[in-house]
């Protein structure tokens, strides 16, 4: 019971600005183990910046970001690398390595994060994860040969292949049609249940939110204005919050 309530991500008074433009102004957030948290907000509110601060790709100007009780800004390169081994990140544009095949894309984190050297073991894990996302026939293809939906599935496969404890999704359904978007959302939910991962999902996609979210936070003016379940926020008295759901 204790494990279920353990806080894995804790953000306190996070501030981040770019060229004098304050993007995050005092974010406070905590994510429990196994929880699926959706961050809703308009474009340019700093949702992706929050995710990048969690992974240490960006360092905060002020405030604290703790992942598994490790203060991100205080970690040295090696410790940050070790911490990132426990996290997965699904990028907005999928960020598949153009010069590598699907197999090489999947083998890349396996060799570097899990340090697997055995080619048969790598092959086994690649095939297994591709079957899970329904892309078993694409193993020798280049990313440029995949459709938008397939690229998202492939990016999800690359994230899942190392079995991370936390997965950060940056707009996982952006640019996809409604049907594919729903498929991806259900796939994320299925993988979350299968591997008991903690998920933080940044999205504008309300049907996707409805499928995935245990809890939602709404972002406005660089800070969080509301938190609650889908039903609670859908029936909120605040017009700004309700406008996302209408």
């Amino acid at each position: 019971m204790k494990a279920e309530t353990e806080t894995v991500i804790e953000i306190k008074n996070l501030e981040k600005s770019f060229n004098g433009n304050l993007v995050l102004s005092g974010i406070n957030l905590s994510v429990k183990k196994g929880e699926s948290l959706v961050i809703l907000g308009r474009s340019g509110e700093g949702k992706s910046v929050t995710l990048k601060c969690i992974t240490g790709l960006l360092l905060p100007d002020a405030g604290s970001v703790k992942v598994f009780d490790n203060e991100i800004a205080e970690l040295d390169v090696e410790s940050l690398k070790n911490l990132r081994c426990r996290m997965g990140y699904l990028f907005q544009g999928s960020a598949l390595y153009d010069s590598m095949t699907v197999r090489e894309n999947l083998a890349f984190p396996l060799k570097r994060i899990l340090k697997i050297k055995d080619h048969r073991e790598i092959e086994k894990r690649c095939v297994q994860v591709l079957q899970e996302v329904g892309l078993q026939d694409t193993i020798d293809k280049m990313p440029s040969e995949l459709s938008g939906g397939m690229r998202k599935r492939m990016a999800l496969a690359r994230t899942l292949v190392v079995r991370p404890e936390i997965i950060l999704y940056d707009e996982p359904t952006t640019g996809l049609d409604i049907i594919t978007s729903k498929e991806i959302s259900q796939l994320i939910l299925k993988m979350q249940k299968q591997y008991q991962t903690t998920s933080v999902i940044v999205t504008h996609d309300i049907p996707c939110t409805k499928i995935i979210a245990d809890r939602i936070v709404v972002m406005n003016n660089g800070t969080y204005t509301a938190t609650g379940s889908f039903e609670e926020l859908e029936n909120s008295d605040d017009e700004f919050i309700r406008s996302f759901f209408n």
Binding site: L57, G93, A95, Y97, R112, I113
Partner: peptide, 17 residues
Amino acid sequence: GSMNVTEQIDAMEVSGA
């Protein structure tokens, strides 16, 4: 440059490279 713009370099960093 193209890898940077499409976040492939960030993805590499997150993938332990």
